[in-house]
């Protein structure tokens, strides 16, 4: 193994070495999962009970007014929470990943972009459990599910979820190293993203102004959830909108990756 270390980054060389780090990636992912499920009961609580409880609260509070527009309002909210649990809860851990693991990052080399992504991979365990539970609920609730359509749109929504999460996790973790104060603002940013996303209500439904509509549409979760729900509730999905959602997800991924790449050179210097 021969390596030249200079101030120029040879992207191709680094890409070639990447497969050597797959074990490290899984080890760190496993660490995150292990820490969450250290107490199996608490792990189960965060993965299954907590989203269900949140869904119940919103269902009870909003069920009569907002729920009118939806036939299966409980499932509508729960589907939102499944995805929010990956994006929002994952981001809450991942955005400080370099600050939390600074002793590790400063002492051992590995491709740094792997670190925030291990938090995403760990959250997918919760996601899988919640998705199984969701499918069970769908079967119980006599919702007429088209399985082929459900699987197709679920996969589509998962791909765009992965793209969006990777992009946002990478960008936020890099921002936090450069601007430490961002940690203070993060709870607000997270809440803003939660309430501007169609999780417990459809943001596109009650807004009349086209411009405001477009503004809310920029929430990255809008596309992901519209894919998933198109599969579950057999709601029609405009192919153009689907295409734009997908392109938007790719754009977020690329932008996050590029931003991280720029920050990566001085990441440890700033830690």
């Amino acid at each position: 193994m021969f390596r030249i270390i200079s101030n120029k980054v040879n992207g191709l060389e680094e890409l070639k070495r990447l497969p050597a780090y797959h074990q490290l990636f899984w080890a760190l992912t496993w660490r995150n999962v292990r820490l969450q499920y250290q107490n199996p009961l608490m792990g189960f609580f965060t993965a299954v009970i907590a989203p269900l409880l949140m869904t119940t609260i919103f269902y009870v509070v909003l069920g009569n007014k907002v729920g009118e527009d939806f036939k299966y309002y409980f499932l509508y909210i729960y589907s939102g929470f499944i995805f929010w649990n990956v994006f929002g809860a994952g981001l809450a851990r991942a955005h400080t990943s370099f600050l939390q693991n600074s002793d590790l990052v400063k002492k051992i080399y590995f491709p740094r972009f792997l670190l925030p992504l291990t938090y995403l991979a760990a959250k997918l365990v919760d996601f899988a459990i919640a998705l199984i539970l969701f499918t069970l609920l769908v079967v119980i609730s006599e919702l007429d599910l088209e399985w082929g359509r459900f699987i197709y749109f679920s996969l589509l929504s998962m791909v765009s979820l992965l793209l969006i999460c990777s992009g946002v996790f990478l960008a936020f973790s890099a921002i936090c190293v450069r601007f430490r104060g961002f940690q203070m603002v993060f709870p607000f940013v997270s809440q803003a993203m939660f309430f501007s996303a169609p999780i417990v209500y459809d943001t596109q439904l009650s807004i009349t102004s086209e411009m405001v509509k477009a503004l809310f549409w920029l929430n990255p979760l809008t596309g992901v959830l519209s894919f998933f729900r198109a599969g579950v509730f057999s709601a029609p999905l405009d192919p153009w909108a689907a295409m734009i959602h997908t392109l938007f997800a790719i754009l977020i991924f690329v932008a996050g990756a590029i931003w991280f790449k720029i920050e990566d050179t001085h990441l440890v210097d700033r830690l």
């Binding site: 390596r3 030249i4 270390i5 200079s6 101030n7 990052v105 400063k106 002492k107 050179t265």
Partner: peptide, 11 residues
């Protein structure tokens, strides 16, 4: 772990 400002090391 960190990059030099100029020059290089071969390992």
């Amino acid at each position: 772990i960190i990059r030099p400002s100029s020059g290089h090391v071969s390992v």
